[in-house]
Simulated assay, not measured.
Amino acid sequence: MEIEEFESIMMTVMVSGLCLFLLFIMFDLARRANAGRLGTFIIVGGLGLGMMAFALKGIIIELLTGFSG
Rank of each mutant, 00 (worst) to 15 (best):
residue 49 L to Y: 13
residue 7 E to Y: 10
residue 11 M to T: 12
residue 31 R to G: 01
residue 47 L to I: 07
residue 6 F to V: 14
residue 45 G to F: 04
residue 56 L to C: 14
residue 27 F to K: 08
residue 54 F to G: 01
residue 25 I to R: 07
residue 36 G to F: 08
residue 15 V to N: 10
residue 1 M to P: 01
residue 68 S to P: 02
residue 34 N to S: 13
residue 57 K to T: 11
residue 69 G to P: 01
residue 15 V to A: 11
residue 31 R to Q: 05
residue 39 G to D: 01
residue 50 G to F: 15
residue 8 S to W: 12
residue 12 T to R: 05
residue 48 G to T: 01
residue 46 G to D: 00
residue 2 E to H: 14
residue 22 L to Y: 11
residue 55 A to L: 15
residue 31 R to F: 08
residue 20 L to Q: 05
residue 50 G to Y: 14
residue 3 I to C: 03
residue 8 S to K: 11
residue 50 G to Q: 09
residue 25 I to D: 00
residue 3 I to H: 08
residue 35 A to F: 01
residue 25 I to M: 07
residue 66 G to Y: 05
residue 63 L to K: 13
residue 61 I to F: 09
residue 13 V to M: 06
residue 39 G to T: 05
residue 58 G to D: 02
residue 59 I to S: 05
residue 19 C to K: 10
residue 56 L to K: 08
residue 43 I to Q: 00
residue 69 G to T: 01
residue 38 L to P: 02
residue 50 G to K: 04
residue 58 G to E: 02
residue 46 G to V: 00
residue 2 E to T: 11
residue 23 L to K: 08
residue 51 M to V: 11
residue 35 A to V: 02
residue 35 A to T: 04
residue 20 L to V: 12
residue 34 N to T: 12
residue 36 G to S: 06
residue 65 T to G: 00
residue 48 G to V: 00
residue 27 F to T: 06
residue 67 F to K: 08
residue 36 G to R: 04
residue 38 L to Y: 09
residue 10 M to V: 14
residue 34 N to P: 02
residue 21 F to S: 07
residue 68 S to R: 12
residue 65 T to V: 13
residue 7 E to V: 13
residue 65 T to P: 00
residue 39 G to I: 05
residue 12 T to S: 10
residue 39 G to R: 05
residue 67 F to S: 11
residue 44 V to D: 02
residue 20 L to F: 12
residue 57 K to F: 12
residue 1 M to G: 15
residue 5 E to L: 12
residue 20 L to A: 10
residue 52 M to E: 07
residue 52 M to V: 15
residue 46 G to T: 07
residue 31 R to C: 02
residue 8 S to C: 03
residue 68 S to K: 05
residue 59 I to W: 07
residue 68 S to N: 08
residue 14 M to W: 12
residue 44 V to G: 01
residue 33 A to V: 04
residue 61 I to W: 05
residue 6 F to A: 10
residue 25 I to H: 00
residue 54 F to M: 06
residue 66 G to C: 01
residue 66 G to N: 10
residue 16 S to G: 09
residue 10 M to S: 14
residue 37 R to Y: 12
residue 18 L to D: 04
residue 16 S to K: 00
residue 9 I to N: 03
residue 60 I to R: 03
residue 50 G to P: 06
residue 45 G to V: 03
residue 42 I to L: 15
residue 68 S to H: 06
residue 4 E to M: 11
residue 11 M to W: 09
residue 13 V to Y: 08
residue 20 L to H: 02
residue 52 M to N: 04
residue 11 M to C: 06
residue 49 L to I: 05
residue 18 L to S: 06
residue 24 F to T: 13
residue 50 G to N: 11
residue 23 L to C: 14
residue 22 L to K: 12
residue 68 S to I: 13
residue 54 F to Y: 10
residue 26 M to K: 10
residue 31 R to M: 08
